[in-house]
């Protein structure tokens, strides 16, 4: 049994220690906002927060999350109470196919938590997610915008 606090609720899962957090989240907990892209920590589609830090859940063994706070993209915000990043994402019309974007937004949210005022270069370094549709310039513009919004 592995106990984690998933999106604020303590839960136990009867899974192998080496089951990646991604598959626990998507299939055991049924939260499908977190995406599978590569399974080898290359693309970032599966990004979630463990104790506030962005991790690539496809290579993060469930046991490593034992007794930790795991937050998925479902906690980011909603239409009625959007996160500043979500507002900026719409303003800049960021997504194309959209598949990578929940991972993008989670990586960006962690970045802003660590660095409320990132430079373009900080963003380049922090945002190593893959977007096959090539939305990078808009992702960057949206993060800069959201940072401004949060700090104002």
């Amino acid at each position: 049994m592995i106990s984690i606090t998933l999106n604020g609720r303590e839960q136990s899962f009867d899974v192998e220690a080496d089951m990646p957090l991604l598959w626990l989240i998507r299939e055991e907990a049924g939260l499908r906002g977190t995406k599978f892209g590569c399974g080898i920590a290359q693309c970032g589609a599966c990004t979630v927060h463990v104790d506030g830090q962005a991790v690539r859940s496809c290579m993060y063994p469930a046991v490593a999350a034992q007794d930790k706070q795991v937050n998925t993209v479902e906690t980011l915000g909603s239409k009625d109470a959007p996160h500043a990043l979500q507002t900026a994402w719409i303003k800049h019309q960021v997504p194309q196919c959209g598949y990578c974007q929940s991972g993008m937004m989670m990586a960006a949210a962690a970045l802003l938590q660590n660095n409320a005022n990132p430079s373009g270069e900080d963003i380049d370094v922090a945002m190593t997610n893959i977007c096959r549709c090539g939305t990078y310039s808009r992702v960057k513009a949206a993060i800069l915008d959201a940072a401004k919004e949060i700090s104002s």
Binding site: V73, G77, K79, P82, I90
Partner: peptide
């Protein structure tokens, strides 16, 4: 503005997977 973007940003879009 694109009609499909709010759903993509607020996770309402259901992909095949």
């Amino acid at each position: 503005p694109r009609h499909d973007l709010p759903d993509k940003v607020f996770l309402k879009t259901q992909y095949g997977i």
